[in-house]
Amino acid sequence: MAEAPSDLPHAMRRMEADLPFQHRSWQVERLSWAMLLVLVAAGLLGIFGGSGPLVAATALTPDEAIRLRYERVQRLLLRTTLLVELPRARPDGQLELRLGPEMLEGWEIHGTMPSAVVSRSGSDGVTLVFETAPAGAGTTIRLMVEPRRVGVRRLSVAAGDGPPSRPAVLIWP
């Protein structure tokens, strides 16, 4: 590389003494550009939530009564929709959803579509009752939720008294 001559005035010599630092700065700068590129690529993939191929996920309750479609990566205060699907028909025409306390701590429920006909709270969370068509296969309930806590949190959704599905969700600040 081209070097400055040694017969420089004092001020310029002092400047040249800082050259190794400047070289390290340039190296860090180039490394930072690569990091920015990785950051943007990760954003496109959905690693930071919002949208992207890695965001969408599904989970079944252990008894396979309901299937959840959710975003495995979310952002604080960014509202998202949690889809609750009934793979099988329920003859009584009703669906009882139980949202566990751990989910209620991490998310604020902003509404459901359709609206719940009954909602009650207890020590095991909140229970919402929906009316479905008698041959309710393929029924989908939409829960509009908003993450309120940062970190890895677990959803907790169960059908009636059944075991809950508890998929982990990463919430970015």
Binding site: A4, P5, L8, M12, M15, E16, D18, L19, Q22, S25
Partner: peptide
């Protein structure tokens, strides 16, 4: 950062 010489004489 620090100042850097770009042109000398």
């Amino acid at each position: 950062g620090v100042p850097t010489l770009l042109v000398v004489h």
